[in-house]
Design a protein around this nucleic acid. Structure first.
Length: 282
DNA sequence: GCCACCGGTGGC
DNA sequence: GCCACCGGTGGC
């Protein structure tokens, strides 16, 4: 199978694709998923953030093949559903909601990272998306999805009657942001929690990965893991090793979410003003 | 003072 | 161009 060059991102509207072609990732407003327990990035405050009004904007559709699978009948994807911008006070006390400002640069300010609201995995057979009830379950599927592709049958653990004939768990309204996850991410070692901090739109990178150690320390690179394991040989003795950690970040389903770095050339006139105007001061 | 967030940069 | 790594710092 040929890898899909560049993980092309298409809108459902634009592509005119059928249900098995584009694997649309859409939001599921009426899905009563429990907030993922134990996901430290999803605070109570986050979970009560009111969902944005449904919009008919196109959903950006990941169209990525599993490049190491033998055929696409047996490939599937893992994805996060991300809460869009939280309600954010801007100068003058206005409140704006981010969804429709998705690609609009905003006044640069520090804000809490966006929350992952739900996890979804694609059925390798019908290509529909099934919401996964917990982060831990999602990590389990993700770790083995190449070897054991996810199918709707596996959702029987929490949704006994679901079959490939049922509609996708997520529906199309474009109210949520989505991120496509890497496949080859091992399940975190016992006691370690893998945290994804989704950055705001317009940042220079999409997300950061941290590992919280059993003692609560956050490690942010393989080198830090390595040092930590040296400092704490008990974990190594228990079989914890560097290969059980991955700092691969997910990819945004939306194009232009991440700000492109301006090219640096000898003539530096180009960097004197931002590529797009930032939000005006009040 | 701490730390989560963000950008810079070197290596590939 | 991408990514791993890490320094700087705003905000608490």
């Amino acid at each position: 199978m040929e890898p899909n060059p560049g993980n092309s991102l298409l809108s459902a509207e634009d592509s005119g694709m059928g249900p098995n072609q584009g694997n649309s990732l859409l939001s599921a407003k009426d899905s009563r998923m429990e907030p993922n327990q134990g996901n430290s990035l999803l605070s109570e405050e986050d979970s009560i953030c009111p969902p944005p009004e449904p919009e008919k904007k196109q959903l950006i559709v990941p169209d990525k093949d599993d490049e190491q699978c033998d055929g696409d009948r047996h490939s599937s994807e893992c994805a996060y559903r991300i809460v869009p911008y939280k309600f954010e006070e801007v100068d003058g006390g206005e409140v704006e909601q981010g969804t429709h400002h998705f690609s609009v640069p905003f006044k640069r300010r520090r804000q809490r990272s966006l929350s992952i609201a739900a996890y979804a995995v694609q059925c390798a057979t019908c290509k529909k998306w099934r919401l996964i009830p917990t982060k831990q379950k999602y990590e389990e599927f993700r770790a083995q999805i190449k070897k054991d592709p996810f199918t709707c049958e596996l959702a029987h653990q929490w949704k006994p009657d679901v079959t490939c004939n049922d509609p996708s768990d997520v529906s199309q309204d474009g109210s949520w942001l989505w991120a496509m996850d890497q496949h080859n991410i091992p399940q975190p070692s016992p006691g370690f929690d893998r945290l994804i901090a989704i950055r705001c739109a317009g940042c220079t990178r999409f997300a950061d990965v941290y590992y919280a150690t059993p003692s609560g320390r956050k490690l942010r690179s393989s080198k830090e893991i390595e040092n930590y394991l040296k400092e704490n040989p008990d974990y190594a003795a228990q079989g914890v090793n560097l290969s059980q950690f991955s700092f691969k970040i997910p990819a945004p389903a939306q194009q232009d979410y991440v700000r492109k770095r301006p090219k640096t050339n000898g003539n530096d006139d180009s960097h004197k003003e931002p590529s797009k105007p930032l939000m005006e001061e009040g």
